[in-house]
Design a binder for these strands. Structure first.
Length: 120
RNA sequence: GGAACCGGCUGGACGGUCGCUGUAUCGCAUUGCGGUAUGGAGGAAAGUCCGGGCUCCACAGGACAGGGCGCCAGGUAACGCCUGGGCAGUGCAAACUGACGGAAAGCGCCACAGAAAACAAACCGCCUACGUUCCCGCUUGCGGGAGCCGGCAAGGGUGAAAAGGUGCGGUAAGAGCGCACCGCGCGGCUGGCAACAGACGCGGCACGGCAAGCCCCGCCCGGAGCAAGACCAAAUAGAGGAGCAUUCACGUGUGGUCCGCACGGCUCCUGGGUAGGUCGCUACAGGCGCUUGGCGACAAGCGUCGCAGAUGAAUGGCCGUCCUCGACAGAACCCGGCUUACAGGCCGGUUCCCACU
């Protein structure tokens, strides 16, 4: 399962320090739906952190949906994402969009910030 | 068949594929990977409005303060919930609604309008019997008129509310003044566990309303919450043990005041917080079925089932097929309620109307 599409526990960012590290000096990519931050984590695999605030998605159901979409996109693309920590933040209005639109938007963010030397 | 009321259930289905997570088991193995099997959001998971369990603070104690509840009986671990009953109101009805104890313990309030708003009152009005003054007539111990002194509360008008209502009698006019019925109060009686109801007798009728203003009466309530709390690796606070000192004052303690209770200073020894990890963390006032008791809420007995436990936070993505095209909405310690949101569908009971036999 080295280059597979699973999403194990180790691929989640844990702890305040991991987040603070990314927020300190991030590479940034944003559009009207998401702001994506990335920074090298010194590991051989990427990790994902989610920051979908109550302000962006008011109901718990809407928030869960966004998180699932981001995780799913990350899971399918993680072999391209190198040793970086990724923090995905939602922006107002994204809950009105359909799943295909959000998947396409995330796809663009991954490609923009992914290390060019990553194996394809 | 139509209209309506009440109660209960359900909350897209199937297949493929890629994932997440708990448990069991097997394998590999630097306690993490992989295989297999199996479980994985709701009726409201929501609001956090009540009631409990659980945890810590004295296993929670006394007095006051403060708060909650409030027809009666039952159910329950408990409740502000539920069931049954009473009373009142709405509806033809099934049904629904209800801050429903006390106003002859006390205080307070009753705006505007109105004459008068509480141990009542007379603005308009009605009357002139009794007593008395004057005038006129006269049959001179009489009659009429005007007034004074007065009488009355029927009618009008105001108001949320005006001192029982209707009818007959009665009277100068009136009036529970008298009587009948209704209402009200009191008394015992009957029925009911009770709230209460009923008939009977007595009383001519008083005790205006607001307690959702204070208050009185009865019952209940200590506080904080899983970031509770317990444990684990490094430095400071704090903790435990032993010895010495003080037992007055002062200070500290999980909600307010007082009491009570516990702790406090110095020396030595033991040992050692953190959203980092582990536990708490899901098996119970548990679900389902049957029997029995009960009008019912519910209880008892027997049988059977194992039914989410995440923690930067799982229960999903994509594709295909089908239908009546899918609402409100996502567990976070756990239960019992209440309230609020909700597309559609199904079932049962009851009432009214219409038609038919």
């Amino acid at each position: 399962m080295d280059s597979g599409a699973c999403f194990p526990r180790r691929a989640r960012m844990a702890g305040q320090q991991a987040f603070a590290n990314v927020f300190a000096q991030p590479a940034k990519s944003s559009d009207r739906y998401f702001t994506v931050l990335a920074r090298a984590n010194g590991l051989a695999y990427p990790r994902l952190g989610l920051a979908i605030s109550r302000k962006v998605a008011r109901s718990a159901v809407a928030r869960n949906r966004i998180k699932r979409i981001v995780r799913e996109s990350f899971r399918s693309q993680q072999s391209q994402l190198g040793g970086l920590d990724w923090v995905v933040m939602g922006r107002a209005g994204l809950t009105a969009q359909t799943n295909p639109v959000l998947f396409a938007a995330l796809q663009r963010h991954w490609q923009r910030l992914a290390p060019p030397c990553a194996p394809s």
